[in-house]
Design a protein around this nucleic acid. Structure first.
Length: 321
DNA sequence: ATGGTTTTTACTGCGTC
DNA sequence: GACGCGGTAAAAACCAT
């Protein structure tokens, strides 16, 4: 199927250079000068003085017959295709040991081609990694912005992604999936976790895949990430609900008490945090409703109620002792 | 796949504005 | 009557086995 040293062909339609004949005066004789685009020179038509040379023809090398065509035909190069990772811009060396005329190559030539193939392949995969990385980093950046994550998290995410790439963890997984997982992991590591749902909200990958990929990546890279600390959600929820510092502090207290009482294990950290924020809002008279908290925390009201009772119980138990 | 645990969904009753 | 809240039962989701 493959061609020789492959050039996907394109239609060169009209390639004649356009002769533009803007005329100014020649500095030498005052005669007409013409812009000879074919040779890249600006030359006087009377005395032959070359006014300028090596100028670059930036015009289209094909002729457009109407405005639409002009738009379609941009400058230069074979048509690109998105079906290849590099849009078909890199060189392919055919595996057949034939020259352009179909004749077999001498054994010396064959060996040479083998070497070339090997090196070409090496460079190309390196390039493809670079491109892969570039795209992934773009994604990470975009998602991080959408989630309001700071720069250092993006850094971490990039590093994680790079490592995943180096360890060949990508095959079989989507770039977007892995970059999302990297970001998710980075956010958790940095102590500003985002829930899986939140992360899933800003990318085209569904939650399951992120979770799966995350687990895989974390295991393979030996990323050690403690289960998210409920307290780390508090500041964000509090600010989303426009609660005071005092309330946030109160919420943190409740959570650390709960930790002492050992309430939190197996329960979702988000739910705990949400309940603490809700409870704190009551205690500081800045009442927000359960559904409001549920909204920003992405947690059902029922869960908030359950956790919030447990929190208060733990608080009381502590007060007694 | 399975079973145990947690979370969610949906519904109900109560009190208040 | 709408709203906030509490509770319950059943379904769904999650996790380790």
């Amino acid at each position: 199927m493959s061609e020789r040293i492959s050039t996907r062909e394109w239609d060169p339609t009209e390639t004649e250079a356009e002769e533009s004949d803007e005329k100014h005066g020649c500095p030498e004789c005052g005669g007409d000068i013409a812009n000879d685009t074919e040779h890249g020179e600006v030359v006087c038509q009377d005395c032959g003085l070359v006014v300028d040379e090596d100028n670059i023809d930036r015009g289209p090398e094909w002729r457009a017959f109407d405005a639409q065509e002009k738009d379609e035909k941009s400058r230069v190069g074979a048509p690109t295709t998105n079906m290849m990772h590099d849009k078909g811009l890199s060189t392919n060396i055919d595996w057949r040991d034939k020259d352009a005329y179909g004749n077999s190559l001498s054994s010396k030539q064959r060996q040479k081609m083998q070497r070339l193939r090997k090196w070409n392949e090496r460079f190309r995969t390196r390039d493809s990694k670079e491109r892969n990385l570039k795209q992934a980093l773009g994604e990470i950046d975009r998602m991080a912005s959408a989630l309001g994550l700071p720069d250092n998290v993006r850094e971490t995410a990039s590093v994680i992604y790079r490592r995943a790439l180096d360890e060949n963890l990508l095959p079989g997984r989507s770039i977007e999936g892995v970059s999302t997982s990297a970001l998710y992991a980075a956010a958790r590591q940095a102590g500003v976790p985002r829930s899986l749902d939140e992360v899933a909200g800003v990318c085209r990958v569904d939650k399951d895949e992120i979770a799966r990929t995350y687990r895989y990546v974390a295991r393979e890279l030996g990323l050690e990430i403690a289960p998210a600390d409920p307290e780390s959600y508090v500041p964000r929820f509090a600010s989303d609900l426009e609660l005071s510092e005092e309330a946030a502090g109160r919420a943190r207290e409740l959570l650390s008490n709960a930790k002492e009482a050992g309430i939190h294990s197996g329960k979702s950290p988000v739910g705990l945090a949400a309940a603490a924020v809700y409870a704190a809002s009551l205690l500081t008279n800045e009442k927000v409703t359960q559904s409001e908290v549920g909204e920003v925390a992405d947690i059902s009201e029922v869960t908030i109620r359950n956790r919030y009772h447990e929190l208060l119980e733990a608080e009381q138990g502590l007060a007694m002792a």
